[in-house]
């Protein structure tokens, strides 16, 4: 039996990364760098529309892909910023890249923070460690639309002063009147003048009007339970507390199964969930 075969070009391929050029690299800490990337194809760059809280798959051929949340604000078009910790093969390979090098991007993927719903409200953002990366996008987005929001409070905890990300910007922001920013570290050194201890300790210093406040949390998995408890103590509604989960998002389009959390997939149903949704997700918190 002879069988005809043919090779079909793959149209609209969601697995094909778009080439992007690294246009800036800033060393934030010994482990983290901030990369600015621009999609090379004009049409792809113009079509790239995202929300704070969404992520991309960073694709380095020969190494693989890794999900990275976007740190820049949707209000800034034409480029994206990724804050990347050297913690695996793809992120390690990224740390060896130089300005001008080309990598691949797929996305944006997932559901971000409900920016439109948050407008007209007070905002309480709580970050731990690298969890500041997606929240930085939200913070900058709020900044660019600052008049649309009430009181904005940012609580950010790090292990040590040298691990505080975006420290230069945050040092300046500590003096701003339109953002209440409180930094804390677990292990202070002699230079540290800010708060010490876990981020949950800072809730004593915060006044919350539960009727008009949205919360957003991102940090290491152990942090969520305790921060949510503090927000609940302030009588905030479960469906106004938003959390962003880190899972192993691999395909980004709800197929490969790696980012399952309870009955959902973090890559299409999240990674941002409100606490009511998260309460109904097994293994989430």
């Amino acid at each position: 039996m002879t069988v005809p075969t043919y090779a079909a070009p793959v149209a609209a391929n969601p697995y094909r990364p778009s080439p992007a050029r690294i246009t800036s690299i800033i060393d934030l800490t010994p482990q983290e760098k901030l990369f600015e990337l621009r999609l090379i194809d004009d049409a792809a760059r113009e079509a790239f529309d995202f929300e704070s809280g969404q992520f991309v798959e960073l694709s380095i051929f020969g190494v693989g892909e890794a999900p990275i949340s976007i740190s820049s604000a949707p209000s800034k078009q034409g480029f994206i910023e990724l804050c990347i910790r050297d913690s695996g093969d793809v992120t390690g390979a990224m740390h060896k890249k130089r300005c001008g090098d080309i990598v691949g991007l797929r996305g944006p993927f997932g559901r971000g923070f409900p920016f439109a719903d948050m407008k007209g409200h007070d905002i309480l953002l709580v970050a731990g460690g690298l969890g500041i990366a997606p929240l930085k996008s939200l913070i900058n987005h709020i900044h660019d639309d600052r008049h649309e929001f009430g009181k904005v409070t940012i609580l950010y905890g790090s292990r040590t002063p040298s691990e505080v990300l975006f420290r230069r910007q945050f040092d300046m922001w500590q003096h701003r009147e339109d953002f209440d920013l409180i930094l804390t570290v677990d292990q202070p050194d002699e230079t540290w003048t800010g708060e010490t201890g876990l981020v949950t300790k800072l809730f004593d210093k915060v006044d919350v009007d539960p009727a008009s406040t949205y919360g957003a949390i991102c940090g290491p998995p152990v942090m969520y339970k305790y921060v949510i408890a503090e927000m609940r103590k302030k009588a905030m509604d479960a469906d106004r507390i938003y959390v962003s989960f880190e899972r192993r998002m691999k395909c980004g389009i709800g197929k490969c199964g790696h980012c399952g959390v309870g009955h959902q997939y973090a890559c299409i149903d999240g990674p941002v969930f409100n606490y009511w949704e998260a309460m109904n997700l097994q293994e989430a918190i």
Binding site: A8, V10, R16, P19
Partner: peptide, 19 residues
Amino acid sequence: MRFRVSDNAVVSESLDTAP
């Protein structure tokens, strides 16, 4: 897909599929 390392490019992406 087939890729090239130097510029992170997709070289080809085709699939052989018999009817």
